[in-house]
Amino acid sequence: MKNYFLVIISALLLSISACKEERGDGDLNLKYAATLNGGNLELNQTYLLNGDSVYFTLIQYYICDASISDKDGATSLDLKDVTFIDFSEPSSLDYNFTLDATAYKNLTYTVGLSDERGATDPSSYASDHPMSLNRSMYWLMANAYVYFKIEGFRIKNGVDEPLVYHVGMNGFAQNKEATQSFTINKGNTTSLITTLNLNEVFANINFDTEPETHTMNNMPLAQKLMNNFVNALTTN
């Protein structure tokens, strides 16, 4: 009887380890992209936007606390604490994570930095950390981080007029969730692309009267832009 019991236990253990071995690992590839007028956005390229000819020279933003959940939504898996996306730096637009091959859903993240992270001292970070001083994303006067920067020009009557949008500070960050499900298959890569639609970012923005904000000097515009920015992010 004892031997029979031992055989059953051994068989159970073997089948569990075999299942795990069959599942294996795969990769999740997270990419970040930007679009304007239905196509990939190129920096320094002129587009028609809100009736104006514009070109963007810089687009940078933070997300933090990116995570996914299992297919039942019961367990959360942290992916990355802070990501600094800079569209002039291709290496900042592509991230790989090795995960158990199984089904997942709900890529969630915070657009900007959580209040807790935003309150930290930038000089405490190593120079290669996304929140280091070297990113030039910290307002000394306000002791606060910039959550996104969009800079460029609007061409009016042959003259390039600057557009500068620096939005941030505690209280501005917003959570975002992509609810779709996806599967990581053993030995394969599954890609998710988070796209920032510049048409949505600048929805209802008048470049004549709203060419710039550094948040503190125009809070309503900063808030409107932050709301637009979060809405402009989609993941597929």
Binding site: S123, L133, L140, M141
Partner: peptide
Amino acid sequence: FTTERGDCFHCHGVYPFMTDND
């Protein structure tokens, strides 16, 4: 450090370096 006035800080205001090194 005021955007509406000198606005030097955007390129020269990352303390303690006093430059953004960009």
